[in-house]
Amino acid sequence: MAKTVLHKANTRGVANHGWLKSFHTFSFAGYYNPERIQFGALRVLNDDTVSGGMGFGEHPHDNMEIISIPLEGDLEHKDSMGNTAVIRKGDIQVMSAGTGIYHSEYNKNKGEQVKFLQIWVFPNKRNVTPRYDQITLNEADRKNKLQQILSPNEADEGVWIHQDAWFHMGNFDKDVAASYSVRKPGNGVYVFVLKGQFMVNGIDLDQRDGLGLSDLEQFDLQALTGDTEILLMEIPMK
C-alpha cells in the first residue's frame, strides 16, 4: 500500500522580508515545524520571489546538493569557485556544496521580480569536492510528457548530483495523462505542482501543493486544467 503525505500550498511556512518572499514546504531558517522536516533525502523546497535588483549576498553552504530552478526572471550567481552566471526559466543549476562554497544570488533585473525554486537534497557522501553546473533544458521536450532534468549519472539527461535522485518536469494540456515508474526500488517521489491542477495517484492537487508518495513502484498523473506545469522529485527515503 502506497504511503502519501499531502502538503497543501497554504500550509507552507512563509518568510516575508520585503525584498524576499519565501514559502517553505519544509522547516527552514526561522520556520520550524517538527511535522515538516523532510521527505526522505529532500530537505528543502523553497519557493522564492525576489524583488528587482535585490538578492542574497555572499553566504556559505556545505554538505548539500543545492538545485535552483528559475520560474520567472533572471538570477545572477557568483561563487567562490570563480563561476559567474545568469540562470533563467528553462535552466537548471546545481551546486554540490561538499567541503564548503561561498556564493551570492541576485535578481539581475531592477525592474522585475525573479521567481525560483531552491531545492536541497542531502548528499549520499559528506565532504565531496565542491562543484557547480548549469544547463539550459529544451522546454519543448516536456510538452505533454515528463522530461528528466536531474539524475545521479553524469552521462544521463539533465544535471547530476551526489544522490540517487531523479527529477522530472512536464507541461501538460488539459486531460493529458502520464505515468511515472520509480527508478530505484525503495525511493519515494515528491510531486510539486507549479502551475494548474493535477490528479496524482487519485489525489487532486492545486497550484503549489506538494504530495509525497512512497512504498510504490509506479503512479499516474493527469492534468485537470490547461497550461499546467509539474515537478517530480524521486529521492531515497532512507
Partner: peptide
Amino acid sequence: ITHFGGGSGLLKS
C-alpha cells in the same frame, strides 16, 4: 548534530 547546509538554513531545525 551532524550539520548540513553550511549556514542558517537548517541550523535552527
